[in-house]
Structure formats: structure tokens, C-alpha cells
Design a protein around this nucleic acid. Structure first.
Lengths: 196, 196
DNA sequence: GTCTATACGCCGATAGAC
DNA sequence: GTCTATCGGCGTATAGAC
């Protein structure tokens, strides 16, 4: 509704730009959204954590939803995995999203997936995956429908991330993670370099 | 919080059991949840559609979340696709979830996916996929880790459904759907019958 | 036992005074 | 710019009428 225009988001920029107050809000919002998800975080909590009034948060960012998509965006992930040998991209991508070392990235992605009930969030997630994965991957692929196939790879990865939490109840061992990455990676690879 | 015990849900039973009022609530809830999603549907709306007071909805079902997982569960899907020739299951599953004829099933699945911010919903979605897909599929599979691989098939399907809305903006033609089903189906098949 | 009426404490969001 | 006051709506609880 509030047609607040915001420039095409680039990574975590909102946390570094604007007045100190705005940055404090953005930083608090990002941390809370990552920890507790979208529904689990209230504007009043964010305001309290940033040391300001709740109304200010809305004033500066238009709405909770806009604030979310502004601060939850993430940096240049996937790039190293996409630039390696093309036959290994499937497994490397799966391994990447499962690796606990990249917990921050997965929490971000999870937060976006779980907040998909909001259309703006879905649109933002789509734009992010295009920017970070589809554009880069499809450019390296051969054969027909490279862009479509890259989108389907994105769908596979999102499905894996969504389902991982449930499986990862009592945190999986490194060996199990590698095994899953190999299995799922082969399925992803099917779309990147289909057997002739 | 309200530890309202409810028997293991079986398909759409809640819509047919209980007093007429309870059934009216369940039917209205199901319809609204499917059309407008979890966040987009209020308890008061459900009550109005059922012709009762909002408090009664809570009285009968404990909470909005419990009501949701009770009525949004779906029937015995996937079974015909899973029972066919094993080498075709991947494509048939992909085709099934994309087919507009099964719009009802996809809306249900989408509603569950989009409401994943709520832990009870995630648990319910997981239980549903196990019951309808993982158990049945893993029983037919050969080799190692049949259950794990079946779970990864489930993850792939959920990823496809989640991403499909975005791609399906101007509704895809039947030919395009078939094409996507073939591509994605091959990737699913990789996990069901991996090449030796 | 069903159901209504009323109310409580949050929520996201707005208007206007400083 | 920032805070105060306030809005309407939300999910939910309870008292009590039928």
C-alpha cells in the first residue's frame, strides 16, 4: 500500500547507510528477524532493541514488511560454488546450503521462505535467487532452456533448505551432511548438465 | 500452549465430524484458508462465514493454528503416481503437482508451505508428506537410504510447488507444464532410481 | 453442553504536537 | 526528526445466558 520507493536493494547496504538511528533500527531488525523469524518479531521489539520508539521504525521504513525485505537481503553467496567446475556445481551448491559454517545465510534464506505468506517477500526472494543464482548459473549452462533449468535448480535448493530444519532436529553429523549433499547434488546436477 | 489433544488427523475428516456448527466452522475455515492463506484469513472472518461468534471457533478448536492444521490436511494424493512404473514416478509426481486439474491439492500444499513460520504447521506438513509420499515411496525403492532419498524427493516437490506460483504469473500452457514436468521429473528420478 | 457478549492485551500503523 | 497519543483489528479468555 505505502508505495515507498526504495532503490534496488544491494546486499546488506541498508545496515550501513542513513542516520545512526536508521542503522540502529536496521541492525536490530536484521538480528531479530534472523533469530525469531518474521511473525516472531514485533515492530515494538525491534524499536526497543534499537532504543527508539516503535512509530519511528514505521516512519523510516514504511511498514514491517518493507523493513523485512530491506534488511534480510544477503550478500553475494553461491558465487564461488557457481564458478567452479560445472560438473560439480550441483553437489557444491547442496553442500553449501547445508554447511553449518554458513548458518547465517541459511537462517536468512529460511526466514524468507517461512515468511512467504507475504507476497512482497515472495517477490523479493525470487529477485534474490535470480540475482545470486539464476543469472550466473544459466550463463554457464549449455543446451536448451538454460534459464528455466536454472530456475528449477533454485527451486530444488529452496526445497532442500525448507525441509532441512525438520530433518536436522538433533543436528546431523558432518558425514551425514556430506552424504545428503552428494545425493541431492546429483539430482541438481541432472538439471545443470543432463546426460546426453 | 492450550494442550488440546486431537487424534491423529485423517484426511478431511474434521469437515464431516462433530456437531453441525463444528462442521460449518471447519468447512468455512478450509475454504477461506485455501483461498486467502493463513495470515490472510482471520478467525472473525471464519466465524462470520460459519454464522457463529468468533469466540466459539476458539472454544471448539483451541486456537487458529490448531484449526488450520486440522482442516487444511488433504486426502490421499500421490498414491496413483507412486504405484505406477517406478522409472516414471519422478515425472508423474512433477506432472501431478503442476497439473491445474489438481488445483485444490496445490492450493492446500501452498497454504501449508506459506504458513511455515508456525512450527506446528511445519510439523504437520512433514507428517503429511511422510504419510502420503515418503512411506509409500521408500517401500518401493531399492538400494541404500531409501527413506532418506524419499525425503529428498519430498523436498524437491515442495520446492517446485513453492516456486511455481512465481513462474506461473501468466498461466503457463499445457505444453510448457509438460516440459517442466519432464525436466524436473528427471531430477527427481535421479533420487528414486539412480543410474548404476 | 452450546453459544453469545464482552473484554483483555497485543499488534501494525497513523496524526499531530514538539 | 522524534515522541505521544491513539486507532482499528487481531487472537484469545471468560462469564454467563439459553
Amino acid at each position: 500500500m505505502s508505495s515507498g520507493r526504495h532503490s534496488p536493494r544491494t546486499a546488506t547496504r541498508p545496515l550501513e547507510e542513513g542516520t545512526p538511528t536508521q542503522r540502529a533500527i536496521a541492525r536490530a531488525a536484521r538480528e531479530l528477524f534472523e533469530r525469531s523469524g518474521y511473525e516472531g518479531t514485533s515492530v515494538r521489539e525491534i524499536a526497543a532493541a534499537a532504543g527508539v520508539d516503535a512509530a519511528l521504525v514505521i516512519r523510516h521504513y514504511g511498514s514491517k514488511e518493507e523493513l523485512f525485505v530491506r534488511v534480510i537481503g544477503f550478500d553475494e553467496h553461491f558465487a564461488p560454488q557457481l564458478d567452479g567446475p560445472l560438473e560439480l556445481v550441483g553437489t557444491r551448491l547442496a553442500d553449501y546450503v547445508l554447511d553449518p559454517t554458513h548458518d547465517r545465510m541459511r537462517r536468512t534464506l529460511t526466514a524468507l521462505l517461512y515468511a512467504s505468506d507475504h507476497q512482497n517477500v515472495r517477490t523479493d526472494l525470487q529477485a534474490t535467487m535470480r540475482r545470486l543464482l539464476v543469472d550466473r548459473l544459466s550463463a554457464r549452462m549449455h543446451g536448451a532452456d538454460t534459464v528455466l533449468r536454472a530456475w528449477l535448480v533454485s527451486a530444488q535448493l529452496l526445497g532442500l533448505v525448507h525441509s532441512w530444519d525438520a530433518v536436522d532436529t538433533d543436528h546431523a553429523t558432518a558425514a551425514q551432511r556430506t552424504h545428503v549433499a552428494n545425493l541431492y547434488g546429483a539430482a541438481i546436477q541432472q538439471l545443470i548438465t543432463p546426460p546426453t
